[in-house]
Design a protein around this nucleic acid. Sequence first.
DNA 1: GACGTTTTTCATCATGTGTTGAATTGTGCT
DNA 2: AGCACAATTCAACACATGATGAAAAACGTC
Lengths: 197, 197
Amino acid sequence: MTARASRGRRPGAPDTRAEVLAAARASFAEKGFRGTTIRAVASAAGVDPALVHHYFGTKDDLFVAALEIPVDPREILAPVVAAGPDGAGERLLRTFLSVWDDPAIQPGLLALVRSLMADDSAGLVRDGFIPVVVGPVLASLVRDRPEVRVPLVASQMIGLIVARYVIAVPPLAQMPAEDLVARVGPVLQHYLTGDLP
Amino acid sequence: MTARASRGRRPGAPDTRAEVLAAARASFAEKGFRGTTIRAVASAAGVDPALVHHYFGTKDDLFVAALEIPVDPREILAPVVAAGPDGAGERLLRTFLSVWDDPAIQPGLLALVRSLMADDSAGLVRDGFIPVVVGPVLASLVRDRPEVRVPLVASQMIGLIVARYVIAVPPLAQMPAEDLVARVGPVLQHYLTGDLP
DNA sequence: GACGTTTTTCATCATGTGTTGAATTGTGCT
DNA sequence: AGCACAATTCAACACATGATGAAAAACGTC
């Protein structure tokens, strides 16, 4: 629980830095930014709090280090949009789920989502992510009125993410990605290209 | 910014208690539980922090006082389910939006949602709210496999709430409720009674 | 006008937190 | 062996926060 006893450099070659980062990632994903304390991260990694600061600097720095999402949304969405509007709902959803189900990526995304909802910093998503990165990409899949269709798509995907990964409501959390694609994909397709009043 | 100068009871009869409660409600809704400080609430109400504690006790007490949701979900859902499965998607959504759009209720709900997503206390929603209160009600609207249909409905409604009220993505946040009912209602209807793989 | 009551502030306390600088010890190089 | 360097801990500071108890001021009542 507490930090180890002896001072100075330890024998062996444990990659302490990686352990600290993993602990931070887990804590941010589970408890959000404010719920995470440097001391708790250090303790989880079996390390002194000062070491955390030594490696990663301030808490904000540690947070962005823990985010580290090795995925470019535009790049990953490229093949989805390249195949055209037919079946785009299913492809889009499948791609999204494959990213979120990746254990190397999920904690970072969870931490981001948790901390975005915590305070009112959601302006980032509202004014940045949706209109700037995902909006233009999806817009090319849409025939008319992208300014209303894209947010509708976003709402269903946000709901799925929150239900499946944040709240983990059963059986959504345990359902194989393909089942979700089969059930929710058509709805996304409807938002993208269906008749809309 | 800081509290007023002179000591003792103020002249006139301002309902300070209500002002403090309003300030707390606003802060909890905007910044969540952890993001809210007693001092900030007191300052927003133009009052000493000790007064907040005098009226409402501990911070937890203040939080539950600020929640104060004057609505019983079961009661409000009764007419929706009484009218049977036809058009239930639209009616359900209309009812939900009318509650969330009520300025007297919205801050409490927002505060609850914000704080639930902050840490991993989402177990309340997962094991309490959805299966115990909303689940049984919706289940009576559903022909088969309610255990998969109800969470799908929930996912779309959660997404709508987060997009419209928490993130406030345009134009969802400004769209009249009836427009949303017309556009998203059919999707809920599909989840409730449509063909599902 | 004296008195009890309510409202309000003041002055602190205890605690948890992020951060920092110095001290200590092991490792690798020459 | 000696030395620079990296890894690690210790001790402490500064600060924000929740909480408390007591004092002061206004009010209502008699």
